[in-house]
Design a protein around this nucleic acid. Structure first.
Length: 341
DNA sequence: GAGCCGTGGAG
DNA sequence: TCTCCAAGGCT
């Protein structure tokens, strides 16, 4: 196996993207708060989606102390649309732990176990913010390393083999740049499909490329089909305001503001579990949405409050964008307002 | 270990 | 339209 780190770092010096949370190549450290915040946001989320949200967060909460003091409902609303809302709940919990102790732990072991900080994120923060030599393995790195070493075992079982292989090529000098270079390489050159092997700085060292099999790695299990579920959105309006509720603290869309819905079941619904008795009117059409493990089709019901006392918040319809609704509810609200206009 | 947990872009 | 997949973590 030829040297990996040197040609990769040379490639990174020439091709590194400028990102708002990233130090220029060659800087041994970066702001731990910005690194941590970006790493949480980037979990299973694209750079394009994270960039504007990251800018908004650091503008509004410039330090981990500021984030620790944030109003939780405001933070959840600020996260709306990014998905995986447990990250937002863990974000504020982690900020409060760090603010209490005064600073981020500076080692992989110390970071591991903070709320929302798992194996990948602990290694990434340690390497990028503090210059610790740590094996940083995300989906990009796993793909690059599986190809470099032609690791034939299927994911996720191969992860420990991949992590160990990553450790053998991670340099003591510039480990943070090395990690980011591997991730940049994976996202732009060593892509899941049709990798650009001719442009890869590591192609002479790559066992999968040598075998003409780069695209075959890593081996991944087949995905399960998503079942279809059905539900109803209840749009209850009174004097220009609409009724919003707060989702239960855990589970799907946990802790987020929402439009009232009935149960999401395997069969199309009837008008049940409405938040209040009303002369519900069904709107034509439905709203579809796809979650991680099921598809949802929502029927749309509108009603008038008629002065009933109802549990929830009455939110100005004209200002609904500021409520911080998850995408599925924002989509339904837009459709209801369009159809009933 | 396997299921749960969002969303949007690419092809 | 549909499938794949992304800087994963938690239980």
């Amino acid at each position: 196996m030829g040297n990996i780190a040197r040609p990769l770092l040379d490639w990174y010096d020439a091709h590194a993207r400028a990102l708002p949370w990233r130090s220029p190549p060659g800087h041994p450290r970066a702001d731990p708060y910005r690194v941590w915040l970006s790493e949480i946001m980037l979990q299973q989320t694209t750079v394009a989606a994270v960039r504007p949200r990251f800018e908004m967060f650091v503008e509004r909460w410039p330090s981990v102390a500021a984030l620790a003091a944030a109003d939780e409902a405001e933070l959840m609303a600020a996260w709306a649309g990014l998905g995986y809302y447990a990250r937002a709940r863990n974000l504020i919990a982690c900020a409060r732990v760090v603010a209490q102790t005064g600073a981020f732990p500076e080692t992989e072991a110390g970071l591991r176990g903070l709320p929302g900080v798992g194996a990948y994120t602990a290694a990434a923060i340690a390497a990028i913010a503090f210059g610790e030599r740590a094996a940083v393995v995300d989906a990009n790195v796993a793909r690059v390393v599986a190809r470099l070493f032609a690791i034939a075992a299927p994911l996720p079982g191969a992860m420990e083999t991949i992590r160990a292989a990553t450790d053998t090529i991670t340099p003591a000098d510039r480990p943070g740049d090395f990690a980011q270079a591997m991730m940049d390489l994976g996202s732009s050159v060593c892509t899941p499909r049709r990798p650009a092997c001719l442009a890869c700085p590591l192609n002479t060292a790559c066992m999968a490329y040598a075998a003409g099999m780069a695209e075959a790695y890593p081996i991944k299990p087949a995905k399960a089909a998503k079942p279809q579920r059905y539900g109803t959105i209840f749009w209850l309006e009174d004097a220009g305001k609409v009724l919003l509720v707060r989702r239960p603290p855990k589970g799907l869309l946990g802790g987020m503001r929402a439009l009232p819905t009935g149960p999401w079941a395997a069969a199309p619904p009837v008008l049940e579990e409405a938040p209040v008795r009303s002369n519900w009117e069904m709107l034509p059409g439905t709203v579809g949405h796809v979650f991680t493990h099921f598809r949802l089709e929502l029927a749309l019901a509108i009603g008038q409050a008629r002065g009933h006392a109802v549990a929830g918040e009455w939110w100005p319809v004209a200002d609904l964008e500021s409520a911080g609704l998850p995408t599925v509810f924002a989509k339904a609200a837009a459709e209801i307002r369009r159809v009933s206009a």
